[in-house]
Design a protein around this nucleic acid. Structure first.
Lengths: 346, 346
DNA sequence: CTTGATAATGTTACCGATAACATATAGGCA
DNA sequence: TGCCTATATGTTATCGGTAACATTATCAAG
């Protein structure tokens, strides 16, 4: 609606009767400009409807002002929590978060990382520790802090904030065993795509073996994301193949919910006829009926810690390069033993 | 790891024995460069580990290459679907999507829009039609296409892709009435923050009045996002105040799920003692037990249509400025009449 | 063998802010 | 008062691409 050309800093400077440089300083904090001048410049900028052109600013300063993050899925409460934690942790530094999702595909992750790099982010957070060779090279050569989150890669690229997915799986396995189960299954996805899920599966099956149980009851040929639909379908196949199964761990709470309700629709009682456990501590696991036993991976904290690491690294402070978080088993009614002592958990 | 300075286009040009301009052309498609030259330049770029600096490119060309979108919540299947549809629709044009979330707060939306504007997006999509005065001004003066989504604002800023939230509410009201209910409640949130939810409520209560029913049974003093926890808490308050309520609409499927399970925990049967309906056609509504009656707002299509509008607008094609989508009632078992004819829906 | 049209490449100027350095002004203290 | 330091402001050069225009190479047709 203004004449045609967007106002520039020079326009504001002219109107306020100062040099463009003073305008530049006035519009950012922590710089020495008289309050009166700053006020006058602000008024001039408002009058002209001027907003700084970050494109030009970051070109000139060499700093883009944002952090890039890849997540497997945009619609996942866990990854959303991590993104939120990261956003919050970066806020004070004036860094913004640029999100991209890979759809659980490391080739897509490579594409995304390359696109991010073109924009010269000040740091990069990737979910997971599995990458294409070229993606590893891109990240290594990026020249900015790189954080791998949600995982404990054997060969970290740079920095890591994660937890042991294998241990999370093992905790569930031991819990189910303690509840008296000996015929225990696992429902998950194509491990090549969801490596964190595959790690949970590995830890789970390992623990079963250690306990002397069979680790054969596995349905894992579905493509991530493994959600309610997949959980329901997989449960049917699990029970068809191993009808005497009494307990099952699912790779996520969503699939656990799908599996649980599929079991109930088949006329089974949960937990009496089938115990069900998930992963991720979604709201759903708390409000489902019965409540679903799960593992809390502290998704939000992962984001906060990643932010802390990035801010410290950019400030040049020495930091630890790896932060390992604990996971916490949350036992709920879906895995209560027959003579339950935790019935009140519902 | 390279000596110190990032390679520039000039470095690539020197190595390939051409001018920088030819490098620029070679690295983007749809430009006239001999295949041999392009190959040579690509090789030189790879050799140097060169990636185009989009910061510089967009500064120079004046085109940032991305579209900005605000959504109320990052972890919401509906908005995620819209974002996905938008991403897909923009892909062919090489436009990327920059997402920001407002936490259902129009002051935060204003902050976000201002931050976006600094980055000179080529188009802006905002969720909803309620904005601060200043935000309206910023959007109007942005000089780029603006799409308001998920709503039908009385005074659109520019373009609109939405549906009638009021009509969605009314459809649920009529459906519950047809199922034989006369004591019908509504559970929602603080309308000042979630105006789309408020519109659904308005349409719902209006329809009740038209049907000659009381529109007093309302619990709506919670802050968005209204999720399972809030749904459960609100149901308790609803039943405490109006114990003879036989049906309730919730502002979203999540809150409907929370309310439904809270009712079941109280010993009620759904749908026999209480019918429950939601909104949004989440997976959850399909896989819950019983399945939850809901309204499909075609979230993904909203994104696709917004993308189409933006692409057309940027290409200078004449377009309609408003696209109104239909909503579809999905009746499930949670609202089945006692002598149900749709019992098979489960 | 020209000529003319088209494709391929080169030249020049510039986008809008900021870093780095230079200078002016204000205020404290001997 | 005069000097010195700290704070406020101005000047100049520059970041790395691309638009717009200019030029050269290529090739088919007459």
């Amino acid at each position: 609606m203004s004449d045609h050309r967007k106002p520039t800093m020079a326009d504001v400077a002219r109107l306020a009767g100062v040099s463009p440089m003073t305008v530049s300083r006035a519009l950012k904090s922590g710089t020495s400009v008289t309050e009166a001048t700053r006020e006058r410049i602000r008024a001039a900028a408002d009058h002209l409807g001027y907003v700084v052109d970050i494109t030009a600013a970051s070109f000139s300063s060499g700093r883009s002002g944002f952090v890039a993050m890849t997540i497997p899925s945009i619609n996942n409460a866990n990854f959303a929590d991590t993104a939120r934690g990261l956003t919050e942790g970066l806020q004070d530094s004036g860094l913004e978060l640029l999100l991209g999702y890979t759809d659980y595909d490391i080739a897509e992750e490579e594409r995304l990382v390359e696109a991010f790099l073109r924009r010269r982010p000040e740091a990069i957070v990737v979910t997971g520790g599995a990458h294409t060779e070229r993606c590893r090279a891109l990240l290594s050569g990026a020249g900015v802090p790189v954080v791998e989150a949600w995982d404990l890669p054997a060969q970290p690229i740079d920095r890591v904030v994660g937890f042991s997915n294998a241990e999370a799986g093992a905790q569930i396995a031991r819990h189910l065993f303690e509840q008296g189960h000996h015929h225990i299954g696992f429902i998950g996805g194509n491990g090549a795509r969801d490596t964190r899920g595959a790690d949970r599966q590995r830890g789970f099956l390992n623990a079963l073996r250690v306990l002397g149980l069979s680790d054969a009851r596995v349905v894992t040929d579905l493509d991530p994301p493994i959600t309610m639909r997949e959980g329901a379908a997989a449960l049917a196949r699990l029970l068809d193949q191993w009808p005497d199964t009494t307990a099952v761990m699912c790779v996520s709470d969503l699939s656990a919910f799908g599996a649980m309700n599929a079991a109930i629709r088949r006329g089974m009682r949960v937990p009496e006829d089938l115990a069900v456990a998930g992963f991720g501590a979604y709201d759903l696991s708390e409000y489902a009926l019965p409540g679903i036993t799960t593992v809390d991976a502290q998704a939000h904290l992962i984001g906060v810690e990643a932010a802390r690491m990035i801010v410290d690294a950019l400030a040049g402070h020495p930091t630890h390069r790896t932060k390992i978080l604990d996971v916490e088993l949350m036992a709920r009614h879906s895995t209560a033993a027959r003579q339950s002592t935790i019935g009140e958990l519902q």
